[in-house]
């Protein structure tokens, strides 16, 4: 799964000369939280997020109604946006993997990454929502089936034993994921989604696999 498979293509983009009020309007009206700011040829120059609109009052001379209105009506996107030039925008290339994108986002605690091609042209946007959607798909949520978590020691041949047991019984896999068992070093948990089968059947088959145990089993 690469960024280009998960991202939202053709995001709403705004030019840097647009007024900040209008950008704010576009964001609320279209229920989006991030607006890539692009110059000529869709080249990324900045990013507008909700935080950009939280302005400090000391940027204004006084807080009179007139002053605030004047200030807001002259305010342009380029003034409030996070600027690429200043290095405030994290981006990702469309050919990178989803986990790399997730890592950048968690590391910097940010909600979205503009996706660019090799020339810095915006081709899409990747938000937390897109990543969460890909997580669902990876674990096979849209289709009905049995979701089982197997705990196995970190040894050669364990995964093969699991898939072998499934294959012997003509079972397919809709989604799969694995992670190191929390607080139990040397063990891995593997989540498998199996369609068109009953819980009992899965339990019967997988409880036979040596050295492994069923930690959790669900019908979803």
């Amino acid at each position: 799964m690469l960024v280009k498979d998960v991202m939202t293509r053709h995001p709403i983009m705004v030019p840097p000369e647009m007024s900040a009020a209008e950008a704010q309007h576009i964001m609320t009206e279209n229920l989006v939280r991030h607006l890539p700011v692009v110059g000529d040829g869709k080249k990324l120059v900045g990013l507008v997020t909700n935080q950009c609109f939280a302005m400090k009052p000391d940027t204004m001379i006084s807080l009179s109604v007139w002053e605030i209105t004047r200030y807001l009506s002259n305010l342009k996107v380029q003034k409030i946006m996070l600027s690429v030039k200043e290095g405030k925008v994290y981006t990702i290339n469309f050919g990178k993997t989803v986990e790399q994108a997730a890592r950048i986002m968690t590391e910097h605690k940010i909600g979205c990454l503009p996706v660019v091609d090799d020339d810095g042209v915006v081709v899409g946007i990747l938000s937390e929502i897109d990543l969460l959607r890909s997580l669902q798909e990876m674990l096979g949520l849209p289709t009905k089936g049995v979701r089982v978590t197997m705990r196995m020691p970190n040894k050669k041949g364990q995964f093969a034993a699991l898939t072998g047991a499934l294959a012997q019984n003509d079972l397919g896999v809709m989604g799969i994921g694995s992670f190191p068992t929390p607080r139990q070093p040397g063990y891995y948990d593997i989540v498998v989604k199996i369609p068109e089968v009953s819980i009992e059947q899965v339990r019967d088959i997988l409880s036979q696999v040596p050295e492994q145990e069923i930690v959790d089993i669900h019908e979803e």
Partner: peptide, 14 residues
């Protein structure tokens, strides 16, 4: 957006 059901990210293209 009167016609967007909210499920589609970013709303319609047109």
């Amino acid at each position: 957006m009167t016609r967007t059901n909210g499920k589609v990210p970013g709303g319609p293209v047109l």
